[in-house]
Amino acid sequence: MSVTTLPPTDQIWEWLSQVPDPEIPVISLTDLGIIRDVEWQGDTLVVTVTPTYSGCPATSVINLDIEAALRAHGIQKLDLKRQLSPAWTTDWITPEGREKLRAYGIAPPVDGTAADGVLAGRVSRLMGNNLTIQCPRCGSTHTQKVSQFGSTPCKASYRCADCLEPFDYFKCI
């Protein structure tokens, strides 16, 4: 097989952008920002993936989904690499990904993490403010945090005081 038949990496990125996150299927792996690199090493495709949370149970499913998707597109030699550093941050969720989250009913992360990794919420609280999280259903900013932990490691539980609906907030990390 000649090297020229290998699909370009732009094409690989495009294919990966079609692979949904297994737990939040409205966003793709590229929206989530966990694909760190795609490159050909000889005739082997090396895809570098970073985990969201250390113990996220979706990690092994994500690897399986990437492999299944790329095999379905005819990729034969595939090497999935795990890269821990720099650690994944919600800052890497794309603007499109944030909109998809909101439309799905999950409030997207507010602000970002500071360069030293300090969480936006904590910085804001130290300055005497609470982060304002907008209800993804009715748009009200009159919302309350129920718990810093939610239905998956990446989310917190909130409640809207206007429309009274509970909702998930994709917390900053």
């Binding site: 985990p51 949370y53 250390s54 821990l84 550093s85 720099p86 650690a87 994944w88 941050t89 993490t113 990794g117 969480l119 904590r122 810093q148 932990f149 490691p153 917390k171 990390i173």
Partner: peptide, 20 residues
Amino acid sequence: SRVADIAAKAEKEVAYHLER
């Protein structure tokens, strides 16, 4: 660097544990 990488990852999670 392997130790530093794991620590940087874990620290972000543990910040939430301590806060709670």
